[in-house]
Design a protein around this nucleic acid. Sequence first.
DNA 1: TCATTTGGTCCATATATAAAGACCAAATAT
DNA 2: ATATTTGGTCTTTATATATGGACCAAATGA
Lengths: 259, 259
Amino acid sequence: MPTIVKQAANVLDLFEFFASTGQPASLAEIAGHFGWPKSSTFNLITTLAERGFLYEPRPRHGFYPTPRWLSLAQEIAHAEPLPESLQDLLRELARLSAETVWLAGSAGQHAVFLAVIESPQAIRYTAQPGKRVPMHATATGQAILSQMPEPRRAALLRQASYERFGPGTPMSAGEVDRIIEESLARGWFMSASSYSQDLGGVSIPLPLNDRMLSATVAGPLFRMGTRMEETAAQMQAAIKRHFGKDYFDRHLPGLRQLP
Amino acid sequence: MPTIVKQAANVLDLFEFFASTGQPASLAEIAGHFGWPKSSTFNLITTLAERGFLYEPRPRHGFYPTPRWLSLAQEIAHAEPLPESLQDLLRELARLSAETVWLAGSAGQHAVFLAVIESPQAIRYTAQPGKRVPMHATATGQAILSQMPEPRRAALLRQASYERFGPGTPMSAGEVDRIIEESLARGWFMSASSYSQDLGGVSIPLPLNDRMLSATVAGPLFRMGTRMEETAAQMQAAIKRHFGKDYFDRHLPGLRQLP
DNA sequence: TCATTTGGTCCATATATAAAGACCAAATAT
DNA sequence: ATATTTGGTCTTTATATATGGACCAAATGA
């Protein structure tokens, strides 16, 4: 179990806190909200303020993050961007499916959501960039795993922790291998309650030069249940439109192509 | 002397590091760059990754921040934005002066830069959002101080530390009061090496409903030295164009208006 | 004008944590 | 095939740090 760095996590908590409230907060409010001691909160806030990441929009009416966060985050996003073509693809998938769609990459034993467009419907799968799901137990992750060279995938699956999340959760490396094999033969990866309850979704592997991503369309099982095959075909078609007719032939010969 | 929270500062360091390199970095690279122990670096990175703030763009080729930073920073900036009109004003000042221009707000004993447009010229004043300068010793800060109700300004100046930064640095509350008085009578605040060496600049207070900001145009003294009065007049004119002819009459009756 | 509340700051010390270093796996070189 | 290097993970313990609580100033209410 990896050691969590408390004060690092606190910075993230604070960052998320301000993103969700959208308002300046006083030391006392922050301390109260998190149940942090006043003195510790003071030290943390002072540190962030000293570094130019927090200021007082109006004196003595609370602290708020400075635009420095935005400025740095933009530089970071700009330097290693998701190609514009991927954003386009995602938008098209969102339009076609009217469900929540996302792109994910890998982070150790987890897949991380890199870009998300939520469904406009009231009942929908909700997620935001940065969300992590276990690699071996989700369609999103399996679609990524399917692109890895054999030894790397084996290494990853060996260290995975096979916890039971739902009825379909695979409980061994062998099971995951089998699911991947079947999914490649089927032409798409299916998430059906193996991790998230009542979720139905379709994932397609998306190798992009040397990055291994996946695209997923998912929604409540009662809407997606009967539309999976159709959705998968739509996704493959959209990907071919965006990246060329021979995209799968060149990068994913193992994947069955739907008509 | 306020206690700095080391691991919180480390998160900020890391964030800035990625913004400046724009590349994924391995644990070893990060540890090397900062001189951090491998194990500590590991803990920190794990913490950020666990929370969905770091991922591996390509497995085993280093970590990089996820778009989650951007997403949260955008929410934060969107909730408490600098009015668009201020951005416009800033752009106009940048165009008119061809020097570096910025907007600043207050953070305790410091003024923080909230928005910056750098001069296109090779020799220029360089700054980024989040930069902090002492309130009492800079034109930017004094222009903010000039807007505060008397007791608050007095309190602030009482606790200020009167360090000598350059020839013109004020060394007591009284001196600052005098400078503010003179500057209001002059119609603008002058920074001339009282904090930054060889810097010449003009600041104008910018009260915006209950926020107390200031706008500054600054560059190397050899370019700005003879243009200050002219620049100040341009700034006042631009502000009046953006916020109405009677802006100063209504919000800053104490400030001399230039022809 | 005085009392009370609220928000912020400082300090000593018990406690949580960062770091040293051993370890392991995978990649690369021989 | 085997050795070496590189990158990542784990555990123990000396040490840095988070915290309780005292304190102070400013704002608010009586």
